[in-house]
Design a binder for these strands. Sequence first.
RNA 1: GGGGCUGUAGUAGAGUUUGGUUACAACGCCGGCCUGUCACGCCGGAGGUCGCGGGUUCGAGUCCCGUCAGCCCCGCCA
Length: 599
Amino acid sequence: MKEFLEGFKRSHYCGDLNSTHIGQEVRVMGWVQRRRDHGGLIFIDLRDREGIVQLALDPERDPEAHSVAENVRNEFVMAAQGIVSPRPEGTINSNMKTGEVEIEINQLFILNKAKTTPFMIDDFADIAENLRLKYRYLDLRRPAIQKNILLRHQVTQAVRDYLNGQNFLDIETPILTKSTPEGARDYLVPSRVHPGAFYALPQSPQIFKQLLMVAGFDRYYQIVRCFRDEDLRADRQPEFTQIDCELSFVSQNDVMAIMEGLISHIFLQILGIAIEPPFRRMSFDEAMDRYGVDNPDVRFDLELINLSEIVKDAGFKVFGDVVKKGGQVKSINAKGCASFSRKEIDDLTEFVKIYGAKGLAWVKVTENNGWQSPIEKFFKPEELDSINKKLGAEPGDLLFFVADNIKIANEALGHLRVHLANKLDLLNSSNFSFVWITDFPLLEWDEEAKRYTAIHHPFTAPKDEDIPIMDSEPEKARAKAYDLVLNGSEIGGGSIRIHDQETQSLMFKLLNISPEEADEKFGFLLQALEYGAPPHGGIAFGLDRLVMLLTGSESIRDVISFPKTQKASCLLSSAPNTVADEQLQELSIRLTPRGKPLL
RNA sequence: GGGGCUGUAGUAGAGUUUGGUUACAACGCCGGCCUGUCACGCCGGAGGUCGCGGGUUCGAGUCCCGUCAGCCCCGCCA
């Protein structure tokens, strides 16, 4: 076969041929999408990564090639030579990119046969995902998935083009690195040379990229794999790819502006969509207040309205009591949804319970702005009027209320808002709405650990004006941190980092990390900060999520070549698997009986 | 750790509510026919441990218990 390919070279991709090639002799190679045998004439649709072209085999024109074609089956690998010809009148296929032409074949070779595939290689069938993942190399042949992977390549190219043009340097950082207990659970790799010691796979190159700033590289980027040993979701894999950036001598606005340039460049290059910077900006507090979440989908309204003040002293004791205990009553006006059935409303009630809400109160607004509702009788007419007014309620509207602590009320209605938008078909996946979320709190109280933890990470700088209150009112201190949210997905997040040793030490103190512990865990970073660390900051974008949104995919798995299942296994290779006793011995590892905790 | 959905020829489904003779049609596959099709067409054929294990019953794809796998979500995770 090697000798054959020495002499027989491909001239074009199948999918690239069109009427400009008419009259040329071309050579194509690819997989048989389908063979249509008319007894005499045989058509073969040959597919490669660029598309499909029709091969026409006429027994009179070339009996030898025609007889080869008689034995061809789906997914055979073929090499073909012939003349690109216009299709006869009336046989042009406008559904195909190459539909105006066909190749009149004069030489046809079978490069390899193929067994009947477990599923058809096309975009019509809806294949069970475990089967797709087991035969991922066949799944990846399907045009829709292949398109995603090709687009992913185009995105990384666009990223490199832009960042290279902005003087960023692509620098690699270690994959075998040190466990840092803050943040997600680490994937650990046992060391053979150091029995009992472990490397950790990086959750992000965070500390190393900061060290690159100390080293003076000034602008760094890396398209880099990161690892987090946490449970999976439709948009979460245990290994994922970040577009990781860090810059020296910049403010928060500098970072955001440069990254708006990057995102605009990507969208223009990939989708031809112009997105004009600056992007919309919104504080964390505003996002929580109006949308209930820190990753608001701003493609639609259905905003959350706080009714706490109105209902605090109103007739409905259940609402009033919640407010008096420090909770909130928030609501959504679903315009024109009064036609929802009892069943539909019950389903929505079940939906908010997922987020801890005890219930979902509702009101159907009737003619003359009256209420049809189980809670109607508890409100005086003037209370009812002021709620209607606050919500802009009109006849035909459906109002929802959640009364609970602030966290649950926000979360339940924030998710209900998106759920309703889906139900009402308000979401358009080809509409891209960006918003920066800024002014995050620096810290968050961890009830379980009885201490503060960093919302972003322990190296995030506080806002200058909040440094004085870090000690006295730590929960009120805000961070120089920012997330970029696209259509309700957090696609990137970053911060200005702490670059002086004193602030970093204060931060560790607030996090209840002792100097000894800090030294043991992050000593190398703290030392580096003492040798002339420049002010710096950066950001990381989730490449997988970005490509998912660019392709309109519903799962992150559809934009990753070899993804893992929800239980983090690879159905193709059967990873993870057990290993030989000898391997364990070399690593000084002894296993406990399966599933039993170590005593 | 928890909640929900799904599992029937190679594939995607119907059948499960109300247990009853040989589990149904489509696509694919195999054979035959067909010279302008393009998710070609026509004729014929093969193909099943109803995820797995146990139970109830005269009898289980169908009911019960357990278990495995995949998916969605909560917790967890930037």
